[in-house]
Simulated scan of single mutants.
Amino acid sequence: MLKSVLLSLLPARSNTSQRQRLRASFGALLGLLITSFVAHFLLGENAMWMVAPIGASSVLLFCLPASPMAQPWAVIGGNVVSGLMGVVCVQFFGPGPTAAALATPLAIAAMFALRCLHPPGGATALMMVIGGPAVHAMGYRLPLGPVLLDCVLIVLAAIAYNNLTGRRYPHSQQLAHPNPHATKDEVPTVRFGFQPEDLDAVLRQYNQELDISRDDLEELFLKTEMRAYQRRFGIITCGDIMSKDVVTAEFATPLADAWREMRQHRIAAVPVLNRVRRVIGIVTTSDFMKHGGLDDYHGMRRQLLDFLRPSGTTHSEKPEVVGQIMVRHPRTASIDTPITELVPLMADSGFHHIPVLDHEERFAGIVTQSDVVAALYAKNALSASGSPTPSSYQAA
């Protein structure tokens, strides 16, 4: 009984990979090295050039860079405002138990009011009270001097390191699935699942601060829904439904040839491959329209013919080949990618054609919106008839 109670008090096992743990630890090392050396150089040996709460701030900045409490305004504003509240308490009550008890609660209230809640700020406020005569002598100069400088330096280090190691920082609040058509409608995947209003209502009911941004929370819920759908209906991969006999182009394919192939085969996109069949771009009818100046529909046929006709010169400002108008580094998928992962891309982000790569990163086929719709329809039909397995889909 006692053993089970003790085990229940243990925290859950972390899902963070060893690589991410090393990334965070090394980032904190670099950030604190930069902060300490630069602050020491600017403020001098005899000055207070480093404050202890910056160590706690580094944990948030490098381990939890997506947390609302780790954003630049939270780190800088939270520590500085909390330091000022601590100094105010010392000024009014002296450096005793009363000031120590009031400093952190007042700092929390100030951080809530200024929307810069940052846990290490509580330690900054308390440090101003119990830091001793040297801290008390500095008064307001400490939070507006060394604390502010240390915060700015550690934030700049976090911005550089997190982005260089593949973590977006600062983590600005944004729509998890912005509508690519710039209309007020929700994107399709959100329409059939839970609504943003549902999440807002639950968060208000929960009525507590969360150490995760709202857009990240919404993204996690949507991905969880997709995984549940895969488990329910089985996994269909891009390799199962892709078109393999695909019209392709090379960088130097003349525009007129590419347009002729697209019209002949009634397709709207052509993957652009290099000589070893790796995808280097994709060209669509939209690219022809955009680069051909076809926004004005008057005289469209004449404009298109002028755009496709070779200039006959060696140097021309007009695009002559596919490589000059293609979208470089297009979004791709693997032959093992479940098609449910393509639904948000096609429904929400406006992708209509996604090239599929084999295990050697070479072009293997292409998946279109029509392919995904047909596969999901067929899968649901088979599930309704009592055959919900991927193998039965393939047989069908």
Rank of each mutant, 00 (worst) to 15 (best):
A269Q: 11
I354L: 12
S36Q: 10
A110E: 03
R141A: 14
T340F: 07
V276F: 00
M242D: 07
F194M: 12
I267G: 11
N179V: 06
G166Y: 06
W259H: 15
G239Q: 05
P105N: 14
K318A: 14
P390T: 10
T224W: 06
W49G: 02
R21W: 15
A123N: 09
T314W: 06
V90K: 07
L153W: 00
R21Q: 13
S4Y: 13
T337N: 05
L203C: 07
I54T: 06
G122F: 06
R328N: 06
G94C: 08
M128E: 03
F62I: 10
T253E: 01
Q264L: 13
L106D: 03
N207C: 08
V147N: 01
G350Y: 08
G83W: 02
S25G: 15
F192K: 10
L153C: 02
D245Y: 01
F37Q: 11
T284K: 07
L342K: 03
R277G: 00
K223D: 12
F233V: 07
D200R: 14
D215W: 15
Y393R: 07
K318M: 14
E218S: 07
S334I: 03
M128G: 01
S36R: 06
L382V: 03
G166P: 05
N79K: 06
P120C: 06
A74R: 02
P119R: 09
L156R: 05
I212C: 05
H298V: 12
I159D: 01
S58D: 11
I325L: 09
A66I: 06
G122K: 04
E361P: 00
G78N: 05
R115Q: 15
P53Q: 05
P178N: 01
S383K: 13
G31N: 04
P146I: 01
Y206L: 09
R362H: 09
A99Y: 00
I212W: 00
V373Q: 14
I108H: 11
K379W: 01
P178I: 03
R191Y: 04
E218A: 09
T98A: 13
E261G: 00
C89M: 15
L149K: 02
L156M: 11
G386F: 13
T35A: 04
P72D: 07
M69F: 15
F351R: 03
A333C: 06
E225N: 07
P11F: 04
A47L: 00
T165H: 03
R301N: 13
L175H: 09
Y377F: 12
